[in-house]
């Protein structure tokens, strides 16, 4: 396992803004100080950058997340990607673009995104 390389030096924890604020994160999971916290991440990548054992802390965190129920905002964001192809709402995008003087843009067909993620909906093949 990737985490077998961990020498418990806790450098990642020293650089983690969540751990420094007293919270649980992937860095406290790695040190055995907590079992939870895989979703509490600022996405700063300092843990990956500093790790002397070159552990892919991000991938370890993602594997852990995939085994857990997602917090509501992550779940909503992922559902949005499956529904419309993007995290943020895009239905009024071309109206806004026109207001700013930008050319209209063609959005992705969400069926394509669902196919890429292997999550087809009933009716996608029609």
């Amino acid at each position: 396992m990737e985490t077998d390389k961990c020498s418990q030096c806790r450098l990642c924890q020293q650089y983690c803004m969540v751990a420094r604020a007293g919270g649980e994160s992937i860095t406290t999971i790695l040190s055995g100080d907590s079992e939870t916290g895989a979703w509490n991440c600022s996405n700063c990548w300092k843990c990956v950058e500093i790790c002397p054992e070159d552990i892919d802390v991000y991938e370890v965190m993602m594997e852990k997340r995939r085994q857990e129920p997602a917090p509501v905002r992550y779940k909503r964001a992922f559902d949005s990607v499956c529904r419309i192809g993007y995290v943020y709402p895009v239905d009024e995008v071309n109206t806004f673009r026109e207001m700013w003087g930008l050319e209209p843009i063609r959005l992705v067909d969400p069926k394509v995104v669902r196919k890429l993620l292997g999550r087809p909906w009933a009716g996608d093949e029609e």
């Binding site: 992922f78 995290v87 063609r106």
Partner: peptide, 27 residues
Amino acid sequence: VDMDDFSCCSSSVVPSMSDDWINLDAY
């Protein structure tokens, strides 16, 4: 140049739920 048909980059959202995230970037 505008990139018609681009999709979600996968961000940190998609890999949190699916190990198929790389397909979005490859697309």
